[in-house]
């Protein structure tokens, strides 16, 4: 999987379930109402519908994914996420998902707040810029990192707001966002003891579940 598209929905070649999908499915209660931001071809929503009986909508800006979503039986609404979620009422969803899309947004902080306005909980995944390989390329060789999870050259990347796990957590603290779950996985979306001990160094992809501080007190 790559982050070449600001969307979550690259369909796996095999019938295997993408491990990040499996982690997200573990976090979600059955029968939930879900909004998937940057839903791609709808693979994640389709998986969650099948495994967790969720309902809801996918938002996607890219023309080419719309017919695919429709064929896959996904409700897709063509939307520019950078314009916000104004057309959704407060508290419309149980979960709002943002899979490998945060780093391509013009206003990531604003979008996180929007996620928690329209939904009770947010789930984001993003490529970790603090991974040792990225640090090595920048720190030792003085070059912008290029890797499996960050495959683009600096001049043609859609990823304009890259961050590390620590950066993300700092933003959450500043915005009164409570992190409920965190997982860091390698490129095969596997977890390990090392990943649990040094997630910001060894994690290639970060997964977070979060809510608003005010909500989590209840």
């Amino acid at each position: 999987m790559t982050t070449s598209q600001p969307s979550s929905g690259s369909t796996p070649d095999s019938a295997e379930v993408r491990p990040d999908y499996a982690i997200i499915a573990q976090w979600i209660k059955s029968g939930s109402r879900v909004l998937d931001l940057g839903c791609g071809d709808g693979a994640l929503l389709g998986f969650l519908a099948q495994e967790k009986n969720v309902s809801g909508y996918g938002l996607e800006i890219d023309d080419k994914f719309l017919p695919q979503c429709i064929r896959n039986g996904i409700n897709v609404i063509q939307t520019d996420l950078d314009k916000g979620l104004a057309e959704f009422d407060d508290d419309s969803f149980d979960y709002v998902l943002l899979s490998l899309t945060l780093q391509a947004m013009h206003f990531p902080a604003r979008l996180l707040e929007e996620m928690l306005r329209v939904g009770s909980r947010g789930i984001v995944t993003f490529p970790n810029f603090g991974h040792w390989r990225a640090r090595l390329q920048l720190g030792l060789f003085g070059k912008m990192p290029v890797s499996r999870s960050l495959p683009h050259q600096w001049y043609d990347t859609p990823n304009i707001h890259l961050c590390t796990l620590r950066d993300f957590e700092e933003l959450c603290r500043n915005r009164n966002i409570d992190i409920l779950e965190r997982r860091a996985v390698d490129h095969g979306h596997q977890s390990s003891l090392g990943l649990r001990l040094w997630p910001n160094l060894l994690g290639e992809i970060a997964l977070y579940q979060f809510t608003h501080k005010i909500r989590s007190r209840h």
Partner: peptide, 15 residues
């Protein structure tokens, strides 16, 4: 579209 998803109806929208 907004009124439709307000009612949790199945809707797809293309611009």
């Amino acid at each position: 579209v907004r009124a439709l998803h307000d009612n949790d109806l199945n809707v797809s929208y293309a611009e």
